[in-house]
Design a protein around this nucleic acid. Sequence first.
DNA 1: GTCTATACTGAGATAGAC
DNA 2: GTCTATCTCAGTATAGAC
Lengths: 195, 195
Amino acid sequence: MTTTTKALIFKEAARLFREKGYNGSTQRQLADRVGVQGASIYHHFPSKQGILYAIMEYTMTSLLQKVRCEMLDASSPEAKLRKAIKVHIEYHTVDRDETYVADAELRSLEAENFKKIVAMRVAYEQIFRDILSEGVQEGVMRIGDVSLATKALLQMCTGISYWFSPGGRRSIDEIADQYVELFLFGICGKLNNER
Amino acid sequence: MTTTTKALIFKEAARLFREKGYNGSTQRQLADRVGVQGASIYHHFPSKQGILYAIMEYTMTSLLQKVRCEMLDASSPEAKLRKAIKVHIEYHTVDRDETYVADAELRSLEAENFKKIVAMRVAYEQIFRDILSEGVQEGVMRIGDVSLATKALLQMCTGISYWFSPGGRRSIDEIADQYVELFLFGICGKLNNER
DNA sequence: GTCTATACTGAGATAGAC
DNA sequence: GTCTATCTCAGTATAGAC
């Protein structure tokens, strides 16, 4: 994707929506950031809602595709889980404006758009739920409630896009590794292992 | 707090802001839910922003007070952590409209209000960070990055207010217990312990 | 494809009677 | 303490020239 005006609107909209929220952002603010007049936006997108939907749809499609792709050459549930978490976190740090918006602005979608995006989110969560279920069945994971654990995991990881900044203390890889260890072994689990 | 009109406005505002977001909610919608005319709201609150701030301030004050109170008669870091997590989750399920708003609408606060609430949030996070640090120092917890783990923990637990509903499959206590176990031992930790 | 100008609507908030 | 009526402004979106 070269930096066409349309791509620039997309990117700046994600940034703006992230900062001020969808309803807290205006077309004029967006136009200012892009460096065009407000009316010009309507040449590229049908409406403000259309921009939001484009961001959400693109982000969820990418996420689904990336995670599914990683699953192809992973065998054990633990290997799958490690890869899935890593991909999730990587995408949530690299495209963190878009992923933040996709996560926080579900309620700003109109009915039809809402349905479509929710379906994609359900499918995405299902991937993680399936990995955990498989781990339980194979006896390598012990989970009281798989759905609960799935929610906990995803919320924990998604939250990274709330505070992450590229210049920070920790690299993306370090963060991902720590989150994987945390979810697999907890903060006391490894100590027991050593006794 | 008896159900005065002011208390009703407060409660309905939390519910409305949770559903539609602060910027997506209007004074007229709020007035409709309360059952008064739009103008009447201004007898009880100075502005829409004033309502948001009242919700945030009250919620953070309650949270801080509840957790600090529980810490008084807890000795070990693990006991403290268990209690703190339980209180956090309980409050995020019982007053889930208010806590959701307090968590999601930080960016909708005006500069002065923002500063005050952020200071309270920092103090709140610090309580959890201190517990984890203590656990590491005493050798009962192993954590690569305490700040990172604190964020992961709080985001995981706070997320409950996004999907919890009182009539659901799991009780508050069950959820809290599972989250505690998850954070302490992970999904593989306990298995290692048994070998 | 971008502009200027503007239509139209709904937002937060206030005035002043009761 | 609540109402009716209304002000004012900012929001999304469109029309039509260049």
